[in-house]
Simulated assay, not measured.
Amino acid sequence: MKSIPVAAETIPPPDKKTIYPAPFASLVQGRTKRKLGDHFGLTNFGVNLTHLASGAVSALLHHHSKQDELVYILQGTPTLMLDKQEYLLKPGDCMGFKAGTGVAHQLVNRSAEPAIYIEIGDRTEGDEVEYPQDDLKATQLASGVWALTHKDGRPY
């Protein structure tokens, strides 16, 4: 935990790029997150500075049961997938994702240039994440650790 201002780009990304199991982990290979909130010891919400390389996705298409999220585009033109709708975003655009609505979302960088955005999410306990297009479910355990299983409950 640091107690002085720093340039966000100097905060190193974590060694582990994703909690997704194979075969899903490879889908976010072009994504780099710098966990700004964790760097400062924030516990109520997370803040990430995220880079998406050309062709990369932010996450699998998903929605949360309890945790809200918000993205703010700094650079590039990622496409927001919102259930079956698509929206081309540009710097200065933002979108919030209210938990419990069942509306799935993800960002896809279809452009030739990198996309950079801030992502903010709360850390409400007991969250579950549904992935409507994939055989994956994430459940947040009491310890805060995420358990990833097939939709029928079998572990990966």
Rank of each mutant, 00 (worst) to 15 (best):
P23S: 06
A25W: 09
A25S: 15
S26K: 12
L27Y: 10
V28F: 01
Q29G: 13
G30A: 04
R31S: 08
T32S: 11
T32E: 12
K33D: 14
R34H: 10
R34G: 00
K35Y: 10
K35I: 09
K35V: 11
K35H: 15
L36S: 02
D38T: 10
D38V: 09
H39L: 07
L42Q: 11
T43V: 13
T43G: 10
T43Q: 14
F45P: 01
G46A: 11
V47G: 05
V47C: 12
V47N: 05
L49N: 06
T50E: 03
H51S: 12
H51V: 12
S54L: 08
S54V: 06
S54I: 06
G55F: 00
A56T: 02
A56D: 00
A59E: 10
L60I: 03
L60C: 04
L61V: 09
H62N: 06
H63T: 12
H63N: 13
H63Y: 15
H63E: 11
H63F: 14
H64T: 04
H64E: 04
H64K: 08
K66Q: 12
D68Y: 04
E69T: 01
L70D: 02
V71F: 05
Y72P: 01
Y72E: 03
I73S: 00
I73H: 01
P78L: 07
T79P: 01
M81Y: 15
M81W: 15
L82M: 11
L82I: 09
K84P: 00
K84Q: 14
Q85T: 11
Y87P: 01
Y87L: 12
K90T: 11
K90L: 09
K90D: 07
P91E: 07
P91Q: 05
P91H: 07
G92V: 06
D93A: 12
D93R: 08
D93S: 14
M95Q: 14
F97V: 08
G100L: 05
G100T: 04
G100V: 02
G102K: 06
G102P: 03
Q106A: 15
Q106R: 15
Q106E: 12
Q106G: 09
L107A: 01
R110I: 05
S111E: 10
A112S: 15
A112G: 11
E113R: 12
E113N: 13
P114M: 10
A115C: 12
I116G: 01
Y117H: 07
Y117E: 00
Y117G: 02
E119M: 09
G121W: 05
D122P: 03
T124C: 06
E125W: 11
D127Q: 07
D127A: 09
V129W: 00
V129S: 03
E130L: 13
E130D: 14
Y131W: 07
Y131T: 00
P132D: 07
